[in-house]
Amino acid sequence: MAILEVLTIPDPRLKQESQPVERFDSSLRDFIHDLEQTMRSSPGGVGIAAPQVARFERIIIVDVSRKPKIQSHGRLVLINPEILEWQGMEKGREGCMSVPDYTGNVIRAKTIKINAYDESGQMRSYDCEGYEARAIQHEVDHLDGVLFLDRLVSRRTDLFQRKVYSEKSVAKSD
């Protein structure tokens, strides 16, 4: 059990593409344990990707369940994740353990459908939305060497039309 060192910019390894996991063995599970400890040791951390700790394999962990009022699947270990469908767009604010003292606005899909293996090598499928979907998209980007800094939009970029629409639909579901 260990908290791993997190790479921070401008480390060029953060721009590196990660490779698929091929062996689902105990060393993988040990690593996932450490990766999760590392994520939970970061204040406000809701996700982490293996390349952030210099292991260039397609493994991410997301857990947004500590945020109140948010629908989620709880602790998600996603190995070789593949986003199959994207729907809607939403501007939200992101920060990153690998980018200290900076947050910025990024547009992400509102809902996604994703396939991934779990830690025992079982293929699973998830439908995610909102905050959880955003966290997953942020982490999957890390696997491709993409940081939220590569996707920043200005404060002025607004999706007013969509917001009006989504507020109405939220009110309906209440």
Partner: peptide, 11 residues
């Protein structure tokens, strides 16, 4: 007026 919470993701 439109108000929305900013819920920053750290990931």
């Amino acid at each position: 007026t439109h108000l929305e919470e900013i819920d920053t993701i750290i990931g």
